[in-house]
Simulated assay, not measured.
Amino acid sequence: MDREVIATTPVSVRYQLTARGVDLLRSLRPMAVYAQRWEPPTES
């Protein structure tokens, strides 16, 4: 993850995924979709 500090008052910090992080996210998304599809229904 890249971190950029911006000199404002108050100080701001901006984060951005690296190329490696973006690649990992692409791999994990199908697993998240699968988990949501097969999540048991909640009882009310």
Rank of each mutant, 00 (worst) to 15 (best):
D23M: 08
P40N: 05
P41D: 04
Y15G: 02
P41Y: 02
T8L: 06
G21V: 02
G21L: 02
Y34D: 15
Q36S: 11
T42K: 12
V13D: 00
Q16S: 12
E43L: 15
P30T: 03
D2R: 12
T9L: 04
A32P: 03
L25T: 11
Y34W: 15
Y34S: 15
R29L: 14
R14S: 04
V13T: 05
R26F: 00
S44M: 13
E43W: 15
L24D: 11
A7C: 01
T9Q: 09
P30N: 04
I6R: 00
T9P: 00
T8Y: 06
R20M: 10
V13I: 05
T9I: 10
Q16D: 07
S12F: 02
V5R: 05
R3M: 05
Q36Y: 11
Y15L: 03
V11K: 02
P30L: 03
P40S: 06
V5C: 01
R29Q: 11
E39F: 13
M1R: 10
D2M: 11
Q16N: 06
S12Q: 12
W38Y: 14
E4L: 06
R14I: 07
T42C: 12
M31Y: 09
L17H: 10
L24T: 11
E43Q: 14
G21I: 04
Y34I: 13
E39S: 15
M31L: 13
L28C: 05
T9G: 04
L25H: 08
W38E: 12
W38D: 10
Y34A: 15
P41R: 07
Q16V: 04
L17T: 09
D2C: 07
E4H: 09
D2Q: 13
S44L: 13
P41F: 00
V22D: 06
A7P: 01
Q36R: 08
I6T: 02
R37I: 06
P41G: 08
L24Y: 10
L28V: 10
V11F: 00
Y15H: 08
P40G: 10
D2Y: 09
L25D: 07
V5W: 04
P41S: 05
R29A: 11
A19K: 03
D23N: 06
V5Y: 04
S12K: 06
R3D: 03
Q36M: 08
M31W: 13
D23H: 09
V13L: 00
T18Y: 01
E4N: 10
E43H: 14
V22I: 12
T8I: 01
E39W: 11
R3F: 03
S12T: 07
D23E: 11
G21M: 03
